[in-house]
Amino acid sequence: MTLDLQTAARPKPAPARPPRGAWRNRLDAKASPYLYISPFYLLFLAFGLFPLGYTFWVSLHHWDILGNNHYTGLRNYQLLLTDPDFWNAVTNTVAMFVIATVPQLLGAMFLANALNRKLRAQTLFRMGVLAPMVTSVAAVGIVFSQLFGRDYGLINWLLHFAGVHNIDWQAHQWSQWTAISTMVDWRWTGYNTLIFLAGMQAIPRDLYEAAAIDGASRRVQFWRITVPSLRPTIIFTSIVSTIGGLQLFTEPLMFNQNLMQGGSLRQGQTVAMYMYESAFQRFQYGYGSAVAWMLFLLIIIIALINYLITRRLAGGRI
Protein backbone atom coordinates (compact mmCIF):
# COMPACT_ATOMS: atom_id res chain seq x y z
CA MET A 1 0.00 0.00 0.00
CA THR A 2 2.84 2.37 0.81
CA LEU A 3 4.28 1.67 -2.58
CA ASP A 4 1.07 2.79 -4.25
CA LEU A 5 1.18 6.18 -2.67
CA GLN A 6 4.73 6.70 -3.78
CA THR A 7 3.85 6.05 -7.39
CA ALA A 8 0.84 8.25 -7.03
CA ALA A 9 2.96 11.12 -5.87
CA ARG A 10 5.54 10.76 -8.59
CA PRO A 11 5.51 13.81 -10.89
CA LYS A 12 3.94 13.11 -14.24
CA PRO A 13 5.84 13.44 -17.46
CA ALA A 14 4.26 15.15 -20.45
CA PRO A 15 1.09 16.76 -19.15
CA ALA A 16 -1.83 16.73 -21.54
CA ARG A 17 -1.77 20.26 -22.77
CA PRO A 18 -5.18 21.77 -23.55
CA PRO A 19 -5.25 22.67 -27.21
CA ARG A 20 -5.87 26.30 -27.88
CA GLY A 21 -9.14 27.30 -29.42
CA ALA A 22 -12.73 27.58 -28.54
CA TRP A 23 -14.02 27.76 -24.95
CA ARG A 24 -15.37 24.35 -25.53
CA ASN A 25 -11.94 22.83 -25.75
CA ARG A 26 -10.85 24.62 -22.64
CA LEU A 27 -13.91 23.45 -20.78
CA ASP A 28 -13.27 19.95 -22.04
CA ALA A 29 -9.73 19.97 -20.71
CA LYS A 30 -10.68 21.53 -17.39
CA ALA A 31 -13.85 19.64 -16.63
CA SER A 32 -13.32 16.24 -18.23
CA PRO A 33 -11.00 14.83 -15.56
CA TYR A 34 -13.48 15.68 -12.83
CA LEU A 35 -16.35 14.36 -14.88
CA TYR A 36 -14.54 11.06 -15.42
CA ILE A 37 -13.66 10.47 -11.82
CA SER A 38 -16.96 11.72 -10.46
CA PRO A 39 -18.97 8.48 -10.85
CA PHE A 40 -16.77 6.77 -8.31
CA TYR A 41 -17.01 9.56 -5.78
CA LEU A 42 -20.75 9.99 -6.22
CA LEU A 43 -21.44 6.31 -5.81
CA PHE A 44 -19.00 6.00 -2.97
CA LEU A 45 -20.60 8.97 -1.30
CA ALA A 46 -24.07 7.48 -1.62
CA PHE A 47 -23.37 3.81 -0.97
CA GLY A 48 -20.05 3.86 0.87
CA LEU A 49 -19.37 6.98 2.86
CA PHE A 50 -22.93 7.84 3.76
CA PRO A 51 -23.71 4.36 5.14
CA LEU A 52 -20.39 4.41 6.97
CA GLY A 53 -21.04 7.70 8.69
CA TYR A 54 -24.66 6.90 9.22
CA THR A 55 -23.69 3.59 10.79
CA PHE A 56 -21.81 5.55 13.40
CA TRP A 57 -24.76 7.89 13.90
CA VAL A 58 -27.14 4.96 14.31
CA SER A 59 -24.72 3.30 16.73
CA LEU A 60 -25.20 6.23 19.09
CA HIS A 61 -28.91 5.50 19.31
CA HIS A 62 -31.35 2.97 20.50
CA TRP A 63 -32.88 2.32 17.10
CA ASP A 64 -35.56 -0.25 16.43
CA ILE A 65 -36.94 -1.93 13.37
CA LEU A 66 -39.73 0.60 12.88
CA GLY A 67 -37.28 3.48 12.90
CA ASN A 68 -38.15 4.63 16.41
CA ASN A 69 -34.97 5.93 17.96
CA HIS A 70 -33.52 7.97 20.73
CA TYR A 71 -30.02 9.18 21.39
CA THR A 72 -28.06 7.11 23.89
CA GLY A 73 -24.51 8.31 23.33
CA LEU A 74 -21.89 5.64 23.76
CA ARG A 75 -24.17 3.29 25.66
CA ASN A 76 -24.23 0.68 22.89
CA TYR A 77 -20.45 0.55 22.97
CA GLN A 78 -20.47 0.25 26.74
CA LEU A 79 -22.89 -2.66 26.54
CA LEU A 80 -20.83 -4.24 23.81
CA LEU A 81 -17.66 -4.21 25.87
CA THR A 82 -19.37 -6.25 28.59
CA ASP A 83 -21.30 -8.48 26.18
CA PRO A 84 -19.91 -12.04 26.39
CA ASP A 85 -21.46 -12.96 23.04
CA PHE A 86 -19.60 -10.15 21.35
CA TRP A 87 -16.28 -11.19 22.84
CA ASN A 88 -17.03 -14.77 21.93
CA ALA A 89 -17.53 -13.62 18.33
CA VAL A 90 -14.28 -11.65 18.46
CA THR A 91 -12.42 -14.69 19.79
CA ASN A 92 -13.87 -16.89 17.07
CA THR A 93 -13.10 -14.40 14.34
CA VAL A 94 -9.53 -13.81 15.43
CA ALA A 95 -8.89 -17.49 16.11
CA MET A 96 -10.24 -18.58 12.74
CA PHE A 97 -8.31 -15.80 11.09
CA VAL A 98 -5.04 -16.96 12.65
CA ILE A 99 -5.72 -20.66 12.15
CA ALA A 100 -6.67 -20.01 8.55
CA THR A 101 -4.10 -17.42 7.57
CA VAL A 102 -0.84 -18.78 8.93
CA PRO A 103 -0.96 -22.20 7.25
CA GLN A 104 -2.50 -20.61 4.20
CA LEU A 105 0.35 -18.19 3.63
CA LEU A 106 3.01 -20.78 4.50
CA GLY A 107 1.38 -23.31 2.21
CA ALA A 108 1.05 -20.73 -0.53
CA MET A 109 4.71 -19.82 -0.26
CA PHE A 110 5.69 -23.46 -0.34
CA LEU A 111 3.52 -24.15 -3.40
CA ALA A 112 4.72 -21.02 -5.12
CA ASN A 113 8.27 -22.18 -4.60
CA ALA A 114 7.38 -25.45 -6.28
CA LEU A 115 5.65 -23.65 -9.15
CA ASN A 116 8.66 -21.39 -9.58
CA ARG A 117 10.60 -24.22 -11.22
CA LYS A 118 10.89 -25.24 -14.81
CA LEU A 119 7.73 -27.23 -15.15
CA ARG A 120 5.87 -29.11 -17.80
CA ALA A 121 2.20 -28.20 -18.02
CA GLN A 122 2.86 -25.02 -16.08
CA THR A 123 -0.50 -23.40 -16.82
CA LEU A 124 -2.35 -26.54 -15.89
CA PHE A 125 -0.71 -26.58 -12.47
CA ARG A 126 -1.38 -22.92 -11.92
CA MET A 127 -5.01 -23.28 -12.88
CA GLY A 128 -5.28 -26.36 -10.75
CA VAL A 129 -4.28 -24.60 -7.57
CA LEU A 130 -6.45 -21.59 -8.40
CA ALA A 131 -9.62 -23.54 -9.22
CA PRO A 132 -11.11 -23.48 -5.69
CA MET A 133 -11.24 -19.69 -5.84
CA VAL A 134 -13.89 -19.76 -8.54
CA THR A 135 -16.25 -21.99 -6.57
CA SER A 136 -19.45 -20.38 -5.36
CA VAL A 137 -18.91 -19.40 -1.77
CA ALA A 138 -22.16 -20.88 -0.47
CA ALA A 139 -21.34 -24.08 -2.34
CA VAL A 140 -18.05 -24.35 -0.46
CA GLY A 141 -19.89 -24.10 2.84
CA ILE A 142 -22.45 -26.71 1.87
CA VAL A 143 -19.94 -29.20 0.45
CA PHE A 144 -17.60 -28.95 3.41
CA SER A 145 -20.42 -29.30 5.94
CA GLN A 146 -21.08 -32.69 4.39
CA LEU A 147 -17.41 -33.61 4.33
CA PHE A 148 -17.29 -32.74 8.02
CA GLY A 149 -20.48 -34.64 8.90
CA ARG A 150 -20.48 -36.39 12.27
CA ASP A 151 -21.96 -39.76 11.40
CA TYR A 152 -21.56 -40.04 7.65
CA GLY A 153 -18.89 -37.49 6.75
CA LEU A 154 -15.94 -38.41 4.59
CA ILE A 155 -13.40 -36.82 6.92
CA ASN A 156 -14.61 -38.73 9.96
CA TRP A 157 -14.60 -41.86 7.86
CA LEU A 158 -10.94 -41.28 6.97
CA LEU A 159 -10.14 -40.45 10.59
CA HIS A 160 -11.62 -43.68 11.84
CA PHE A 161 -8.76 -45.52 10.15
CA ALA A 162 -6.52 -43.60 12.50
CA GLY A 163 -8.65 -44.66 15.43
CA VAL A 164 -10.45 -41.34 15.86
CA HIS A 165 -14.20 -41.79 16.09
CA ASN A 166 -17.06 -39.60 15.01
CA ILE A 167 -15.92 -36.11 15.85
CA ASP A 168 -18.92 -33.81 16.14
CA TRP A 169 -17.41 -30.97 14.15
CA GLN A 170 -20.28 -28.60 14.85
CA ALA A 171 -20.31 -29.16 18.60
CA HIS A 172 -16.97 -27.84 19.75
CA GLN A 173 -15.29 -24.53 19.32
CA TRP A 174 -11.93 -25.95 18.25
CA SER A 175 -13.58 -28.23 15.71
CA GLN A 176 -15.61 -25.44 14.17
CA TRP A 177 -12.49 -23.33 13.95
CA THR A 178 -10.66 -26.16 12.23
CA ALA A 179 -13.45 -26.97 9.79
CA ILE A 180 -14.15 -23.38 8.82
CA SER A 181 -10.46 -22.52 8.51
CA THR A 182 -10.09 -25.53 6.23
CA MET A 183 -12.76 -24.11 3.92
CA VAL A 184 -11.08 -20.73 3.85
CA ASP A 185 -7.69 -22.25 3.18
CA TRP A 186 -9.03 -24.50 0.48
CA ARG A 187 -10.54 -21.53 -1.30
CA TRP A 188 -7.74 -18.98 -0.97
CA THR A 189 -4.39 -20.79 -0.81
CA GLY A 190 -4.18 -21.00 -4.59
CA TYR A 191 -4.79 -17.29 -5.02
CA ASN A 192 -2.02 -16.41 -2.59
CA THR A 193 0.23 -18.95 -4.25
CA LEU A 194 0.02 -17.02 -7.50
CA ILE A 195 0.71 -13.75 -5.75
CA PHE A 196 3.79 -15.24 -4.14
CA LEU A 197 4.81 -16.78 -7.43
CA ALA A 198 4.68 -13.36 -9.07
CA GLY A 199 6.82 -12.00 -6.25
CA MET A 200 9.32 -14.83 -6.63
CA GLN A 201 9.65 -14.34 -10.33
CA ALA A 202 10.66 -10.76 -9.73
CA ILE A 203 13.63 -11.85 -7.61
CA PRO A 204 16.83 -11.64 -9.68
CA ARG A 205 18.03 -15.13 -10.49
CA ASP A 206 21.70 -14.37 -10.12
CA LEU A 207 21.14 -14.05 -6.38
CA TYR A 208 20.34 -17.77 -6.31
CA GLU A 209 23.18 -18.62 -8.64
CA ALA A 210 25.64 -16.81 -6.47
CA ALA A 211 24.28 -18.59 -3.41
CA ALA A 212 24.47 -21.92 -5.19
CA ILE A 213 28.11 -21.32 -6.00
CA ASP A 214 28.66 -20.60 -2.33
CA GLY A 215 27.20 -24.03 -1.66
CA ALA A 216 23.88 -22.94 -0.15
CA SER A 217 21.23 -25.66 -0.30
CA ARG A 218 17.79 -25.02 -1.77
CA ARG A 219 16.34 -24.78 1.68
CA VAL A 220 18.88 -22.22 2.76
CA GLN A 221 18.25 -20.30 -0.45
CA PHE A 222 14.52 -20.33 0.25
CA TRP A 223 14.89 -18.88 3.73
CA ARG A 224 17.81 -16.57 3.03
CA ILE A 225 16.87 -15.18 -0.35
CA THR A 226 13.24 -15.94 -1.25
CA VAL A 227 11.51 -15.10 2.00
CA PRO A 228 13.29 -11.79 2.65
CA SER A 229 12.76 -10.67 -0.95
CA LEU A 230 9.06 -11.44 -0.66
CA ARG A 231 8.63 -9.02 2.21
CA PRO A 232 6.33 -6.59 0.36
CA THR A 233 4.31 -9.47 -1.05
CA ILE A 234 3.94 -11.04 2.37
CA ILE A 235 2.70 -7.79 3.78
CA PHE A 236 0.30 -7.35 0.89
CA THR A 237 -1.18 -10.83 1.20
CA SER A 238 -1.50 -10.66 4.95
CA ILE A 239 -3.33 -7.34 4.76
CA VAL A 240 -5.66 -8.63 2.08
CA SER A 241 -6.25 -11.79 4.14
CA THR A 242 -6.93 -9.65 7.19
CA ILE A 243 -9.61 -7.60 5.49
CA GLY A 244 -11.22 -10.70 4.01
CA GLY A 245 -10.66 -13.08 6.91
CA LEU A 246 -12.10 -10.83 9.59
CA GLN A 247 -15.30 -10.38 7.60
CA LEU A 248 -15.91 -14.13 7.48
CA PHE A 249 -19.64 -14.76 7.18
CA THR A 250 -20.93 -17.14 4.53
CA GLU A 251 -18.80 -20.20 5.31
CA PRO A 252 -19.60 -20.39 9.04
CA LEU A 253 -23.25 -19.64 8.32
CA MET A 254 -23.55 -22.50 5.85
CA PHE A 255 -21.57 -24.79 8.14
CA ASN A 256 -24.14 -24.12 10.85
CA GLN A 257 -27.20 -24.77 8.70
CA ASN A 258 -28.04 -21.09 8.22
CA LEU A 259 -28.17 -20.48 11.97
CA MET A 260 -26.87 -17.02 12.61
CA GLN A 261 -25.81 -17.97 16.17
CA GLY A 262 -23.22 -20.29 14.64
CA GLY A 263 -23.93 -23.25 16.92
CA SER A 264 -25.69 -23.95 20.16
CA LEU A 265 -23.04 -22.16 22.19
CA ARG A 266 -22.13 -19.80 19.38
CA GLN A 267 -19.04 -21.89 18.74
CA GLY A 268 -18.67 -20.64 15.20
CA GLN A 269 -20.24 -17.21 15.30
CA THR A 270 -18.08 -14.49 13.77
CA VAL A 271 -18.34 -10.76 14.40
CA ALA A 272 -19.98 -10.28 11.01
CA MET A 273 -22.60 -12.88 11.95
CA TYR A 274 -23.14 -11.23 15.30
CA MET A 275 -23.66 -7.91 13.58
CA TYR A 276 -26.19 -9.49 11.24
CA GLU A 277 -27.94 -11.23 14.12
CA SER A 278 -28.16 -8.03 16.15
CA ALA A 279 -29.41 -5.94 13.27
CA PHE A 280 -31.48 -8.28 11.13
CA GLN A 281 -32.70 -10.90 13.55
CA ARG A 282 -33.02 -9.05 16.82
CA PHE A 283 -33.60 -5.76 15.04
CA GLN A 284 -31.38 -3.69 17.29
CA TYR A 285 -30.08 -1.45 14.57
CA GLY A 286 -28.16 0.74 17.00
CA TYR A 287 -26.43 -2.16 18.65
CA GLY A 288 -25.70 -3.84 15.32
CA SER A 289 -24.16 -0.62 14.06
CA ALA A 290 -21.91 -0.48 17.09
CA VAL A 291 -20.80 -4.04 16.28
CA ALA A 292 -20.05 -2.92 12.71
CA TRP A 293 -17.80 -0.14 13.93
CA MET A 294 -16.04 -2.44 16.36
CA LEU A 295 -15.43 -4.78 13.46
CA PHE A 296 -13.89 -1.96 11.50
CA LEU A 297 -11.69 -1.13 14.46
CA LEU A 298 -10.72 -4.76 14.82
CA ILE A 299 -9.69 -4.91 11.17
CA ILE A 300 -7.51 -1.85 11.56
CA ILE A 301 -5.89 -3.13 14.75
CA ILE A 302 -5.20 -6.58 13.34
CA ALA A 303 -3.91 -5.14 10.09
CA LEU A 304 -1.48 -3.00 12.11
CA ILE A 305 -0.34 -5.89 14.29
CA ASN A 306 0.00 -7.93 11.18
CA TYR A 307 2.10 -5.31 9.54
CA LEU A 308 4.38 -5.05 12.56
CA ILE A 309 4.79 -8.81 12.89
CA THR A 310 5.47 -9.47 9.24
CA ARG A 311 7.92 -6.59 9.20
CA ARG A 312 9.73 -8.01 12.18
CA LEU A 313 9.65 -11.56 10.83
CA ALA A 314 10.89 -10.60 7.44
CA GLY A 315 13.66 -8.85 9.30
CA GLY A 316 13.89 -5.28 8.23
CA ARG A 317 12.39 -2.05 7.19
CA ILE A 318 9.84 -1.43 4.53
Partner: peptide, 29 residues
Protein backbone atom coordinates in the same frame (compact mmCIF):
# COMPACT_ATOMS: atom_id res chain seq x y z
CA UNK B 1 -4.80 13.98 -17.28
CA UNK B 2 -3.59 16.72 -15.09
CA UNK B 3 -5.96 18.41 -12.68
CA UNK B 4 -5.96 20.09 -9.34
CA UNK B 5 -6.15 17.79 -6.32
CA UNK B 6 -5.37 14.70 -8.31
CA UNK B 7 -3.02 13.06 -5.82
CA UNK B 8 -5.28 13.76 -2.86
CA UNK B 9 -8.27 12.35 -4.73
CA UNK B 10 -6.33 9.25 -5.66
CA UNK B 11 -5.32 8.78 -2.06
CA UNK B 12 -8.95 8.80 -1.07
CA UNK B 13 -9.62 6.01 -3.53
CA UNK B 14 -6.83 3.90 -2.11
CA UNK B 15 -8.17 4.54 1.37
CA UNK B 16 -11.67 3.39 0.41
CA UNK B 17 -10.23 0.03 -0.58
CA UNK B 18 -9.58 -0.58 3.11
CA UNK B 19 -13.21 -0.05 4.12
CA UNK B 20 -15.14 -3.28 4.55
CA UNK B 21 -18.46 -3.18 2.71
CA UNK B 22 -20.29 -4.93 5.51
CA UNK B 23 -19.79 -1.91 7.68
CA UNK B 24 -22.53 0.00 5.98
CA UNK B 25 -25.23 -2.57 5.39
CA UNK B 26 -27.52 -1.46 8.20
CA UNK B 27 -28.08 2.10 6.95
CA UNK B 28 -27.85 0.86 3.38
CA UNK B 29 -30.74 -1.44 4.16
Amino acid sequence: LRFRGRNALLLIIVATMMVPVQMGIIPLY
